[in-house]
Structure formats: structure tokens, C-alpha cells
């Protein structure tokens, strides 16, 4: 695992190669598995991501709490102009041909996760909707092949490793920025590389993602990974797409990625406990949030 984005980018540049290659080589030097085994495992993880998305889009599951389920299915139908009880779908979704199916997929995985279905934590379960949504939509809309997607997962994993080393991947430690923020940055960096961006652009995509997600708190209603986690995966995926496009356009963010990550870690450590996955603050503590909690879990108003 790399301890900084600067080191990853430098190693790739020096070797005249991509981030995925140096991340994989670094991994192989640390673990007992070989390259084929790592790629084979990633292939099965990608298959699990596909299954969760497909199941979620069917829209037949409801979470144990009853608070979520069916949103992915409804959104997809609406965005294809098939109505579904919404408004204006026939004119096409404002989010466009890439983002609309991506939104549906992000909702799908997270609805399956809330229903205690099988997903891939990437990097966490609370942020498991982002990578599959972006990767599988890239496959559909841009025709990216599976081998490239696997390389993208490697790059994403390498970026996640830097987040783990410099900040956190845990909502209880660092707020939602540490979960959906990390996942979005991993996806943005990977997308940039899959679409031909240079290693330095990967790092820019990480900066562009996180600068917009700093300070995001973790405030799940009743501690359930549903509200707002499911829709927050959507916002994070949107952020990742914008960040990837800015990086690919050659825009640069003046603060280096590692410094942006360090400040994310610092903010996370300073967040009060009620904003770190305790279900005691933020949206969870609103009057409606508390009422919904009592409806599904029992108890009394605080």
C-alpha cells in the first residue's frame, strides 16, 4: 500500500507506466497471493457488484426497517421515460445519459445493502454503491472492457489504501467524508486512468473529489445504513464524475491530494461524536428523524 498519492504518482511516472501497475506490484510484494489470484478475486468481486446492482434494480427488496427499497427501480423507469409516477421523465433526466443510469445503480446497491443482501465493501458497506455505479455505467456507456475495469479496481484500491493510511475509511472515526468521500475519490481516480488520463491526473481527481466533500458528517437515522446513506452515495458519485471530468480536462487543484487528505483526517478527528455514526446528531436528531426511528425500532422520544 502507498502512504501518499505523491509516491504512487511518482513511482508510476518513473516506471513510465500507470497507477494500477505500480499499485498491483506494491501489493504483490506484500501478500502471499500471485497476480492471477488477485485478478481472479477482483473478477469475482466485480461479479458480486453486478449481482447486487441487478437485484436492486428489480426493486423487489425492502430493508428490514421498511424505510428503503424500490427507489432504484422507480428512478430507472422514470429516467427511461417509462413514468413510474414521476414527472417529466419523457423529456429525459436532467442528469444525462451517464449520470442517470449511474444514479439508479448507486441506489440499487445501497438498497440491497440495507436489506442485508450481499455487496462488496468498497471501501465500506456504507459507501458500497459508488464504485459499482460508476464502473458498470462506464462499461455500458463507454464500452470499457472487463480487463480495464479490473485495472480500475486496482487503482481504486491503491487510492483507498492512501486514504486509510492518511485519514480514515470509517464513518465512526471520520464522518461520512471518510466513507462516501473515500469511495468517490477512489472511483474518480480510477475513471481518469481508465479513460486514459496520466498518473498526475489521477491525483488531481482525488483532490477535486475531496475538496467538495470535506466535513461531511455521518448521521444515519437510527444508526441504520439507509437514511441518508443511500442517497448520499448518489451525491458522492455525482461529485466523482465532476471531479474526473475536471481532471481529464487538465484542470488542476492548487492543494496537493495528500494535503487535502490530511485535512480530511484532521476534520474527522475533530468531529463531535454525535456526527460520527452514533445516530445521535444531524439528520438522525431532527424531529422527523427521531420519529422515524421510534416507528421502526421502538423506544421513546429523547
Amino acid at each position: 500500500m502507498f502512504g501518499s498519492m505523491a509516491e504512487m504518482v511518482q513511482r508510476a511516472r518513473d516506471a513510465g507506466t500507470s497507477c494500477w501497475r505500480v499499485v498491483l506490484d506494491e501489493d504483490l510484494s506484500q501478500i502471499t497471493l500471485g497476480e492471477d489470484e488477485v485478478l481472479g478475486t477482483l473478477r469475482s468481486r466485480l461479479a458480486t457488484m453486478r449481482e447486487a446492482v441487478a437485484l436492486g434494480l428489480e426493486g423487489k427488496t425492502t430493508s428490514l426497517s421498511g424505510l428503503s427499497g424500490g427507489g432504484a427501480h422507480r428512478f430507472r423507469d422514470w429516467s427511461r421515460g417509462a413514468g413510474g409516477g414521476g414527472e417529466g421523465g419523457e423529456r429525459g433526466p436532467l442528469s444525462g445519459p451517464f449520470c442517470a443510469p449511474m444514479i439508479a445503480r448507486a441506489l440499487a446497491t445501497m438498497e440491497i445493502n440495507a436489506a442485508m443482501g450481499r455487496i462488496v465493501a468498497s471501501p465500506t458497506a456504507g459507501s458500497a454503491g459508488i464504485l459499482p455505479a460508476i464502473f458498470l455505467t462506464l462499461e455500458e456507456v463507454r464500452g470499457i472492457d472487463e480487463e480495464t475495469l479490473l485495472r480500475g479496481l486496482i487503482t481504486a484500491g491503491g487510492i483507498g489504501g492512501v486514504f486509510r493510511a492518511r485519514a480514515s475509511l470509517s464513518g465512526a472515526e471520520g464522518g461520512c467524508q471518510a466513507e462516501t468521500g473515500s469511495a468517490a475519490a477512489m472511483a474518480a481516480g480510477a475513471v481518469v486512468e481508465m479513460l486514459g488520463g496520466a498518473p498526475a491526473m489521477v491525483s488531481e481527481a482525488v483532490s477535486f473529489t475531496i475538496q467538495g466533500m470535506l466535513g461531511l458528517i455521518c448521521d444515519p437515522l437510527g444508526g441504520l445504513v439507509e437514511i441518508p446513506c443511500i442517497t448520499r452515495n448518489v451525491s458522492a458519485a455525482m461529485q466523482a464524475v465532476a471531479a474526473a471530468d475536471m481532471a481529464l480536462a487538465g484542470l488542476t487543484f492548487p492543494i496537493p491530494a495528500d494535503e487535502v487528505l490530511d485535512v480530511m483526517g484532521e476534520i474527522g478527528r475533530e468531529l463531535p461524536e454525535r456526527y460520527r455514526e452514533t445516530g445521535l446528531g444531524g439528520l438522525a436528531a431532527t424531529p422527523t428523524g427521531q420519529l422515524l426511528k421510534i416507528q421502526v425500532m421502538g423506544g421513546e422520544l429523547a
Binding site: 500500500m1 501478500i31 468481486r45 430493508s63 455487496i119 468498497s122 458497506a125 475509511l169
Partner: peptide, 20 residues
């Protein structure tokens, strides 16, 4: 520790820290 632990584990939801 590996990228396979970042892009993973495959797990039953809903929370990687509170469940897996």
C-alpha cells in the same frame, strides 16, 4: 493487507464496520 481488503470484503450488509 491488500487492495483486496479495500475492494472487499464481499459481505452481507449493511455496515462493514458494524457487521463484517
Amino acid at each position: 493487507m491488500s487492495i483486496l481488503d479495500i475492494i472487499g470484503p464481499e459481505m452481507v450488509g449493511p455496515s462493514s464496520s458494524h457487521t463484517a
